[in-house]
């Protein structure tokens, strides 16, 4: 293996044994800089425990989780190197958003003005002087992201950041994280919102029952589950179309909505076959493999409450 860069996250043989539960079980993976990495797994898969071990909040039973080769506690200036959002509702209810951020600035030796800068970045300036108990869940998430950005870190770690965000908020967060990765930062996002991950992530790390299931670029991972692309065709002349497609050697499955799902032939070939057979087409669409399907297939039987 190559020597890890300082902004690369390296997890090696990480294990956490609670009294009766092995929450994380010999887990190894790497997270590269300049990309958004989705950290996926069913509830109770050990995602949060892994992130907490990475951040020095939970002590591993065995193995290491490091930034480059350094543990979080050994980083000389952690706030300027790593930003993390672990819980949305983690501020004192009676404190204002601005003071929550200033409190971190003071402990980390950052100027108070950084608080106002990140509030502007996350669009919370109008609510800066409101107490935390008056914040909506979406505003709490934004405040958490603001706190993570205070030190302008090279590495960002977010645990379920899309929880409680409205569609506009989710889109905002997606754009923000993508732009941060485009600046060369390392972005690790845990989530169970698979559709959102498909839009956001470049790489995925899939875990279940504390173990690594699959790691790699989203497109590769989509390629192996059930991910052979299927083509959906709709035609008023279903029978003639089925006959024409049979000559291509494709498998045709009727869908409940009256369209046909075709496996084993590409859209262009299907269109051509329909054209030569004189069949009228109303729809012809290639459907990408779906992360949700792949995820369910990969984690089948390994998920659930342990």
């Amino acid at each position: 293996m190559s020597r890890p860069g300082t902004d690369e996250i390296v997890v090696e043989h990480l294990t956490k044994q609670y009294k009766r539960l092995r929450a994380v079980d010999d887990l190894s993976f790497r997270v590269r800089s300049g990309r958004v990495t989705g950290f996926l797994g069913p509830n109770g898969a050990g995602k949060t425990t892994t992130l907490r071990m990475l951040l020095g909040l939970v002590t591993p039973t065995a193995g290491t989780a490091t930034f480059g080769s350094r543990k979080y506690v050994d980083l000389p200036d952690p706030v300027r190197e790593v930003g993390a959002v672990l819980e949305a509702s983690s501020a004192n209810r009676g404190r204002t958003g601005r003071n929550h951020l200033r409190m971190i600035c003071r402990a980390a030796g950052l100027p108070d003005s950084r608080a106002d800068e990140v509030l502007a970045t996350v669009g919370l300036t109008p609510a800066a002087n409101r107490k935390f108990k008056g914040y909506s869940l979406g505003m709490k998430q934004r405040l958490g992201i603001a706190a993570a950005l205070l030190g302008d870190p090279r590495v960002l770690i977010l645990d379920e950041p899309a929880n409680g965000l409205d569609p506009e908020g989710i889109r905002w967060m997606r754009d923000l994280l993508k732009s941060l990765a485009a600046e060369g930062r390392t972005v690790l996002v845990s989530s169970h919102l698979l559709g959102e991950m498909q839009l956001l992530a470049d790489d995925v790390v899939i875990v279940a029952a504390g173990k690594l299931i699959r790691q790699g670029p989203v497109h590769d991972v989509l390629g192996d589950g059930s991910g052979h692309a299927q083509v959906r065709v709709r035609s008023p002349q279903t029978e003639q179309l089925t006959a024409a497609l049979a000559t291509l050697g494709a498998t045709v499955t009727p869908a409940p909505d009256g369209s046909l799902l075709v496996h084993g032939a590409e859209a262009a070939a299907i269109g051509h076959a329909a054209f030569t057979a004189g069949v009228e087409l109303h729809e012809l669409a290639t459907e990408q493999g779906d992360l949700e399907q792949v995820f369910l297939q990969l984690t089948a039987g390994k998920a659930g409450i342990r």
């Binding site: 951040l55 020095g56 909040l57 979080y72 506690v73 980083l75 952690p78 706030v79 672990l86 501020a91």
Partner: peptide
Amino acid sequence: TSEFFHLTATTTFLTTPH
């Protein structure tokens, strides 16, 4: 106790891991 009551212990120990 307020650090645990308001779940701010995480933020505090992330800011100062020592």
